[in-house]
Amino acid sequence: MDAMKKPGDHTTLVERLSSIEEVDLQDLCDATEAAIRDGNGFGWLAPPRRSVLESYWKGVILMPERELFVAWLDGRIVGSVQLLRPSRHNEAQAHIGRLTTFFIAPHARGLGLARELLRLAEEEAVEDGFQQLDLDVCATQTAAIQLYERHGFIRWGERQAYAIVDDQPVAGYFYAKVLDRRRKAKP
């Protein structure tokens, strides 16, 4: 993808990442830690050891069922989303892709990177022949919920104890979007 200029003369970019250099891995881990500390930890309540994060992201790159899309701000990775394919043994749900680990580091928000990451992942899902995208989100993530709903995701379910934070249940929502495979996804 082409780099974009944003207010404040920041250079931004979203792209699919199929390999990762060490410096970019460290940036991705930094962004992940910042998002976790801000309450958007896609399962983590506190940042794990750095070696755990490094292993996690290296594993994502190696897994053929996962496509990693990243957001860059001024040459550094600041966010991600993954497109997960169903198991090859799951013929009945082979038409459904799943989005996960969607975050933008707090210092990089407000520049349209989340919107662009979502658009790129959706375009890839259409190109891959998926008919539907699913995702889930913690009810406390209001900005993400608003983004999903603006982009045509429909809330179809809720779980009251989606997560446990500080020994208290936190609700979560489940979303789906039917994809128009006749044309590329649009924001």
Rank of each mutant, 00 (worst) to 15 (best):
F69D: 07
Q82F: 04
V81W: 05
W72K: 11
Q82L: 15
V70F: 04
G75H: 12
R66Y: 04
F42R: 03
K58S: 06
D30F: 02
A34M: 10
L73W: 13
E67W: 02
E54K: 01
F42P: 01
L73A: 05
Q82A: 11
W72T: 00
W44F: 14
E65M: 09
L28A: 05
T32Q: 12
A46H: 10
R85E: 14
L45A: 10
P86H: 02
V78M: 11
D74P: 15
G59V: 00
M63C: 08
V60M: 06
I36Y: 02
A46T: 13
A71D: 04
P64Y: 07
L68T: 12
R49T: 06
G79E: 10
R88P: 13
Q26D: 12
V70N: 00
T32V: 01
P86T: 05
L84Y: 11
I77A: 09
D27Y: 11
W44Y: 15
R50I: 02
N40I: 03
S80Q: 08
C29N: 06
C29A: 05
L68W: 05
A71K: 12
W72F: 07
L53I: 10
S80Y: 03
S51Q: 11
L62A: 15
Q26E: 08
R37H: 08
L84K: 14
L68S: 06
D74C: 12
M63D: 14
D30R: 13
S87L: 10
R85K: 14
A35T: 03
Q82E: 15
I77F: 11
K58T: 06
E54V: 01
D24P: 05
G79A: 14
A34L: 12
G75Q: 11
V60I: 14
I77T: 04
P64D: 15
A35E: 09
T32N: 08
V52P: 01
L45D: 01
N40R: 03
N40F: 10
S51P: 00
Q82D: 09
S51C: 08
L25D: 03
D30G: 05
D27W: 11
L73T: 00
K58W: 05
L25V: 04
R85V: 14
P48G: 09
S87M: 11
A71E: 00
L45W: 02
V60W: 00
Q26M: 14
E65C: 04
D74M: 07
F69C: 07
T32S: 12
L45H: 10
L73N: 07
R88I: 15
L25G: 08
L28G: 02
G41Y: 05
P48A: 07
R85S: 14
E33D: 13
L73Q: 13
E54G: 00
F42H: 12
D38K: 00
R50S: 03
L73M: 11
L45I: 11
V60Y: 03
K58A: 05
L73H: 10
R76V: 00
W44A: 08
F69E: 11
E33I: 01
R37S: 04
T32E: 09
E67M: 06
P48T: 03
K58I: 05
D38N: 10
E33C: 06
R50Q: 13
G41Q: 06
G43C: 02
D24E: 13
L62V: 01
V70T: 10
L45Y: 01
E33T: 06
A35Y: 00
P86V: 04
R66D: 02
D24A: 15
V78E: 15
V52N: 04
R66S: 01
G79M: 09
T32D: 04
Q82G: 09
A71Q: 08
G43H: 03
